[in-house]
Design a binder for these strands. Structure first.
Lengths: 252, 252
DNA sequence: TAGGATGGCTACCCGTGAGTATGATGCATG
DNA sequence: CATGCATCATACTCACGGGTAGCCATCCTA
């Protein structure tokens, strides 16, 4: 299967100039959707800007049609450019997917790292992370981030992606453990719980395209409140989760 | 894009003989992994058996390499058969994916329907459904079920799939509503909560291939206990079978 | 033992799409 | 003006993979 054409005929040019979304977790670029080419056909040779436009266009196409059903001609057409132009900014299709993935996951990673510096109880820190997580999955790169699979990528890329994903997973597990220690989180299996949380959030990418009735932030909020309280009704039914002394209504 | 070759050159033959997993929700076929051709080269002209073997082989390949990275030659090779033989049992690749999807989702549907006949409190009925759900996602068809996307299928197939998925979604929402009425489920937004539950379970398919340290049933149980209690600690930590750090018992 | 049905294989067709060779254009500077 | 760099288009190569045509083998039945 690895026919292994010669790798990267274009040298050092496009490596390592990634990071479409290097702004911190909070903000996100305000769209500016149009193709820079058409916009100002000349005098805008800002390579970085164009490169980002390519990646964004790829993300949109991947969103709509999926990775395998998107040809590079499609992406080029969306930008009103020809295919070699796309290759001028990106070395191959795989890298395109990878960049989309990174753009999607970067804010989550930032949130994770930031959460370790906060001094709030672990449940609050976890909620903050999950908030960013949810928003990221509902972003334009969410689909790519979530669906970027080892199956479609070379071992190297796949390794990178797995490492990043694992960092997030470990971060969540750590927060869960800390929360169980400081008493802010219910006793649970950190691994399974982390899987459940991340899974629920990841899945947003699958239905968000279809029905965007809510904003990413709203969805994140709704999910967090589900995670917090669970299904079993709480005795102190009010708005507060303060639940004092209560007769343990036996489950089952 | 729809080149629209003539549909189904093979008539009535393979339509409507699906249902690999028509056994009720509980059981699941005990493997019997080997290709029936090789096994008994002659005297086993049980078309249905062979057809199911084809679908199972497809599911395994889709699991491992993804739909687009699996060629029909691969599937044929796995069965030690030639490609036209595969086409003898199945009309095209798309249908193959569809069958895998149906095989995966059928038990969940059955569980959903059955849940409406039970008379337990809604939370218990919901838990039963989620249990089957989790097991199904961890089954050999789980990946196909979860990843069968409209993007890869014709509008007709896509419609079928969406309808089935929606039936499950509606079933879960209904159970949530009923639970809120009979007091067995915490007040919540049924739509978002259903999304969260289904998402968490769906996502199992993504990591289960890699680490099968737990059985599907164990995972389902772990997830359900997460769903039940949520993150916020409960005052009466007593009877809860909370932190049951499931020991990694290797399955199979 | 003919002849149909069933099941299968070899060998092919052909569209699609990733990636490239080559060269044109514009722009800046020596 | 000549040279060089950056940017982009036309027009290709080529492998892969879905799907098929046509043929062969076997078995069942009469």
């Amino acid at each position: 299967m690895p026919t292994s054409r010669r790798k990267s005929a274009s040298p050092a040019r496009d490596r390592a100039e990634s990071d479409i979304s290097r702004e911190g977790p909070p903000a996100r670029p305000p769209a500016a959707r149009e193709s820079p080419w058409r916009a100002s056909r000349e005098r805008l040779r800002d390579r970085q800007v164009k490169r980002e436009a390519v990646i964004r266009a790829a993300a949109q196409s991947f969103n709509r049609k999926g990775y395998h059903n998107t040809s590079l001609d499609d992406i080029a057409a969306a930008l009103e450019v020809s295919k070699p132009t796309v290759y001028y900014y990106v070395s191959n299709k795989e890298q395109l997917l990878f960049e989309c993935f990174v753009a999607g996951i970067e804010p989550i990673l930032a949130a994770c790292r930031e959460a370790r510096l906060m001094k709030a109880p672990a449940r609050e820190r976890l909620k903050a992370v999950l908030r960013y997580y949810g928003r990221a999955v509902a972003s334009e790169f969410g689909w790519c981030m979530v669906r970027a699979e080892d199956q479609d990528l070379s071992p190297a890329m796949s390794g990178h992606i797995k490492a990043l994903k694992s960092e997030i997973d470990q971060g969540i597990r750590r927060l869960l453990r800390e929360g169980m220690q400081d008493g802010s989180i219910h006793a649970c299996d950190p691994k399974m719980t982390a899987f459940a949380l991340a899974g629920a959030l990841n899945w947003i990418a699958h239905w968000y395209r279809e029905s965007q009735s809510l904003s990413g932030a709203q969805i994140a909020e709704a999910f967090i409140s589900v995670f917090e309280s669970g299904l079993t009704p709480r005795p102190s039914a009010g708005s507060a989760r303060s639940a004092r002394h209560v007769s343990a209504r036996p489950i089952r």
